[in-house]
Design a protein around this nucleic acid. Structure first.
Lengths: 198, 198
DNA sequence: CCTTTTTTGTTTCGACTCGCTACAGTAGTG
DNA sequence: CACTACTGTAGCGAGTCGAAACAAAAAAGG
C-alpha cells in the first residue's frame, strides 16, 4: 500500500463522486433475469428514499429536498414509479394538500435488485472501526455542506434532538407524536443533529 | 457528538451519494455574477477531468470510462463544451483516429467557479489524519467496486506501477515516455495500483 | 500485401432528467 | 375575509443517457 500521500480534498471529492456514479450504474447485468427492470438513477434514489423514510417524510416535497432537486422534477419521478406500480399514493389524513407515498410489494421486490447493493457490499468490507471513522467524517462533511448550501440535513430520529426516549417509548417534539422502535431508524426531513443547545 | 452507531454500509453509501449530489448542484448562486455560467453536472465533470488528466488520457474515450458512461454520450458532452469555447480539440500526433482535448483559457476561468469547490472546502476542513484515513478507505472501496464492475481505476502516475522514478526523472513503462514532474500528479487511464506483484 | 478485427469517435433515436415557470388547491395568519 | 405560505402538478426547452449504426484509422494475422 502507498497511501501516505497528502490526500487533498480534491482527490477525496473526486473519489466520492466516482463512487456515487459507479455505484448507481447498473453495471454488467447478469445472464438470466428479466432485462426490463432497469430503473434510472433518480428512480432508484426515490424508491430507496421512500422505503427508508418515516411517515412524516414520505412526501414528494421531502424527497425533492433529499434529492437536492425541485418539487417539479421530484413529482415526475414519483409519478413514473406510481405508473410502474412500485409506489402507491395515499391521501394525508389531515392535510388535504399532502400525499404520502408507500412502497408497494412490487417496489420492495424491485429493491432486492438495487444496483447500489454492490457499493454497499464494498463498503461493508471495510473494518468496522474504519467504517465508523469514515461515517463520522462524512457525516460532518454532510452537515457542513448542507449548512453552506442551505439544504436540510437528513437523519434518523434516534440521533435527532427532537426525539425524547423515556422508559422504552420515544416521543418526537417536532411532529408531536409517539414513534415506534422501527421508526427510530427511519429517515426524517425534520432531522436536527443532537448537539448540546449551549 | 453521538456517532458511535453501527454505521452500516447502507448509511455510508447514502452519505456518499448525497454528498456527491449536493456537491455538484450549483446551490444558491450569489447576487452578482453572470447567471449564464451554468454548466450541467456532466459538463462540470468533463471540464474537471480534462483539466486534471495527462496527455494520454485527455480523449473522449478515456473520459467516457472515467465518467462510467458510453462513448456516444461522452462525445456529446465534449462537443457541447467545445461549442461553449471551454475545450479545444487537437489532432493526435500519430494516431489519426484520436483527438486530444485541451482546456482553453475560458475553461480554466470557468473552473474557478466550480460548484464542487464547496464540497472540497468541506472535506478540507477535516483533520489531516482523518482525511488520510478516509482517503485510504474510499480508495479501497473504489478499487473493489471498479473490479467488480469491470471498470478501470483512475489514479495518478506517482502511485502507478507503470512508473519508474530514477534520479529525478520519471519514466512510464506503459506509454514508454518520460513524464514531467507536473504530469506525475495528473490522472491517467492506464493507472495500475502500486502493489507488490507477488 | 491484403483481409479481418479492434479501436476511436461521431451521429441519430427515444426515453428520461432537470430547472424553470405557471398554475390550482389547501393551510395557516391576521 | 384577504393574504401569505405551502404542496403538488403540468408543460417547456436543454441536456443526459444508453443503444444502435456508422465511418475511419490502427492493429493483427495470414
Amino acid at each position: 500500500m502507498s497511501t501516505d500521500i497528502s490526500a487533498s480534498g480534491s482527490d477525496l471529492a473526486d473519489m466520492i463522486v466516482y463512487l456515487s456514479r459507479l455505484g448507481q450504474s447498473p453495471g454488467r447485468l447478469g445472464i438470466g433475469a428479466a432485462p426490463a427492470q432497469n430503473l434510472t438513477a433518480a428512480q432508484w434514489t426515490a424508491l430507496r428514499y421512500f422505503a427508508r423514510a418515516n411517515r412524516f417524510s414520505r412526501t414528494p416535497s421531502a424527497f425533492s429536498e433529499f434529492h437536492a432537486t425541485t418539487r417539479g422534477t421530484a413529482s415526475q419521478t414519483v409519478k413514473s414509479l406510481v405508473t410502474l406500480g412500485l409506489l402507491s399514493r395515499q391521501m394525508h389524513e389531515t392535510d388535504g394538500r399532502s400525499t404520502v407515498m408507500e412502497v408497494t410489494e412490487a417496489g420492495h421486490e424491485m429493491l432486492r435488485h438495487d444496483p447500489m447493493a454492490e457499493l454497499r457490499n464494498v463498503l461493508e468490507k471495510l473494518a468496522p472501526a474504519v467504517r465508523a471513522a469514515v461515517a463520522q467524517a462524512l457525516g460532518q462533511a454532510v452537515a457542513d455542506l448542507a449548512q453552506s448550501r442551505n439544504a436540510p440535513v437528513f437523519g434518523s430520529c434516534s440521533e435527532c434532538s427532537h426525539c425524547q426516549t423515556d422508559a422504552g417509548t420515544s416521543y418526537c417534539h417536532c411532529t408531536q407524536s409517539l414513534l415506534s422502535l422501527r421508526e427510530m431508524d427511519a429517515i426524517c426531513v425534520d432531522f436536527q443533529p443532537n448537539r448540546n443547545p449551549a
